[in-house]
């Protein structure tokens, strides 16, 4: 009788011991580097200052390639999630949805190299990275590839969403135009 109970208790505690080990691993394995890295990047952002970033970012809005690569990357890196979307104010209305789409799609790919940019949502990357770590595989390679593929994907998203937005805005204009026409007739 007592054996059964103690086995149950052992099993119950065991569940959380596994979790505790995992937590210890995260705290000692990830936190120290994370904290130092985040401090360095946060300091860099403060030293450069928002005005200079804005100036550089603005110049990246003109052509379609930098608008959905350099511009959102700067926004996410320097303003971090969620304030990065405020950079949309530098764009014309027709580009805003595409910019948002590009910027928000970068808030996870950036975390492999620069976790400060989205510290509340690290585990999309880190969850998977933890598994690789258990296999003793190096993480540098996947972090950099995640970043590069991220840039390519947000570029594609920016262009596709810009096209769809243009088509939908066109339809809307057409509709409201025909409505005013029929109203005047």
């Amino acid at each position: 009788m007592f054996d059964v109970l103690s086995n149950l208790a052992q099993g119950f505690i065991g569940l959380f011991q596994k979790g505790g080990e995992n937590f210890m691993g995260l705290v000692t394995g990830i936190l120290p580097t994370l904290i130092v890295l985040m401090t360095a990047v946060n300091a860099l952002i403060k030293i450069i200052g928002e005005e200079k970033i804005e100036k550089v970012a603005r110049s990246a809005t003109k052509n379609i390639i930098t608008r959905y690569t350099v511009f959102p990357v700067l926004a996410v890196f320097f303003l971090t999630n969620p304030m990065c979307y405020s950079f949309g104010k530098f764009l014309e209305e027709k580009y805003k949805p595409a910019f948002y789409d590009a910027a928000v799609s970068f808030v996870h790919p950036i975390t492999g190299l620069f976790p400060h940019a989205n510290s509340g949502e690290l585990f999309v990357y880190m969850g998977i990275a933890q598994g690789l770590e258990q296999l003793n595989l190096p993480l540098g390679d996947i972090a950099i590839r995640y970043f590069i593929v991220g840039v390519i994907v947000i570029f594609m998203r920016g262009i596709v969403t810009e096209r769809i937005t243009a088509i939908m805005m066109g339809q809307r204009m057409g509709k409201s135009a025909s409505r005013t026409q029929s109203a005047s007739v």
Binding site: Y85, E93, T161
Partner: peptide, 27 residues
């Protein structure tokens, strides 16, 4: 919310939501 952070007009938000959702199916 993200669009309004970027000072988007209400009309842009109305178009932007479905545009992004559609785009994601492709991208």
């Amino acid at each position: 919310v993200g669009l309004s952070l970027g000072d988007a007009e209400p009309e842009t938000v109305e178009v932007g939501v479905p545009a992004i959702l559609m785009s994601r199916l492709i991208t």
